[in-house]
Amino acid sequence: MKKSDEFKIGRMLEEMPLQKTGSIMNTKFDHLKERYRTPNKSISRVKWIIYYAAASISIFLLAFLLASYLQQKRIEQLQISNAYMRSLLIQTLPANQAVDNQLKVFDYLINNENATYTADELIEIYENTDDINLKLASLELFDKFRSQDRVLLFLSEQLQVEESPLLLIPLINFISKEKSRKGIEVLMNLKKDQNIHKAVRDHLNDLES
């Protein structure tokens, strides 16, 4: 009797009814299935890498363009600032009676502006000032632009019209160093001039010897 009970219990355990899941489980499973129904995970990973790379390149490109734009803007601002500074200096030049101040302006122009522009400014200053010291300082600065024809021509002309021996001698030195045809011609004419100051004539003779 007892054995048959054990047999019965064993059979009952084997035949215990399955507990049934509710219909909501099917819906939950469908959601789960949808989440996993991707064509191929390895492809999607590759795609993800491509998207990531594309996004990185785009961000890098945007950053580069932004940096270029900001740099260009800064250059423009500097150019505007330089132009303003130049204009301000030129405007204040006549008011700066001290030669030191005027030379500082020239230094600034030489260091910060292009050679043609600065040479033009120097020519203009030389022409418009009566201050001998300023003219002498300008002549020293002209040395940096001696390769420019306009400077040589201008100073040759000045040699013809200048009367002060204090300026004539440095002018002669400047022109003689260049040994240009026009310069030599001017110097020869100057030597023929009977009214020329003795010191200048002596200097010319020294140069010739």
């Binding site: 215990m16 399955l18 507990q19 049934k20 899941t21 489980m25």
Partner: peptide, 11 residues
């Protein structure tokens, strides 16, 4: 397997 595994937990 749904009912089988569900029963696994229930029992």
């Amino acid at each position: 397997y749904k009912d089988e595994v569900f029963s696994f937990f229930r029992y």
